[in-house]
Simulated scan of single mutants.
Amino acid sequence: MQRRHALALLALPLLAACAGGQGTDYRIGGYEVGFGDRIHSAALRAPWEFGDLSRWQGQPGRAALAVADLEILTDGLARDPYWSPETPPDVVALLGRARAAVRARLGIEQGAPPALVVAALLQAADALETGRASLAPRALEQPGFRQDGPGTLGLLASLPRLPETSTAANAAAAEIARRAGGTD
């Protein structure tokens, strides 16, 4: 009986991969870290992905993914019904300041809807990572993006290290670790 359960558990990741769907944390090039929902995964990746945005110099697709993670995390920890009630206000504030700093650098309006920003960034990253680079600029020509597509790509490729993102990334990862450990 235990062997059957073990085999069933081994099959779960394969079934989940085949199912796809809205709950999937889609990543370019098969890069997925974490488990559960997109907010949890983004928090686990935060120190690496957007803690130091200068890491992605010359890699606008990777920078777009990092900024998308920041957007997902900022919006999710502030508004998601599961995450927001227990997220400390200081973590939400740090993420808000980090998002504001990145949006200012990229020429994205502060009031642009996070879902629109995330969709544009993921579409551009997908185009860059799948050999369709000519489609990437058009993906970034959305309401709320003040630069043209090539201009935004250039900014993504040259993001500096920002102290706001480093602080926010570490705070978000620590908050998820705190919850996982069940400590307050």
Rank of each mutant, 00 (worst) to 15 (best):
A42S: 13
R97I: 03
L116W: 07
G29D: 13
I39F: 08
G61S: 12
A104C: 05
A120G: 08
G36P: 04
W48C: 07
L14Q: 08
D25Q: 11
P81G: 02
R161I: 05
G96V: 01
L122C: 00
P13I: 08
Y31D: 14
R79Y: 06
L135R: 05
H5I: 05
G23T: 09
P60M: 03
V118P: 00
R55K: 11
G149M: 14
V33S: 01
L70P: 06
I72V: 14
E129Y: 09
L135Y: 10
A63V: 03
A46P: 00
W83H: 12
L12T: 07
A19D: 11
L155F: 11
L95E: 03
R45S: 14
Q142E: 10
L162P: 14
G181C: 00
R4T: 12
A101I: 13
A120P: 12
W56M: 02
Q147A: 14
R103P: 09
H40C: 04
G154R: 10
Q22N: 06
R4M: 02
A136E: 05
L128P: 03
Q110R: 14
P81H: 00
L10A: 13
P60F: 13
L15Y: 10
G111A: 15
E32N: 05
I39A: 01
A180V: 06
P13T: 04
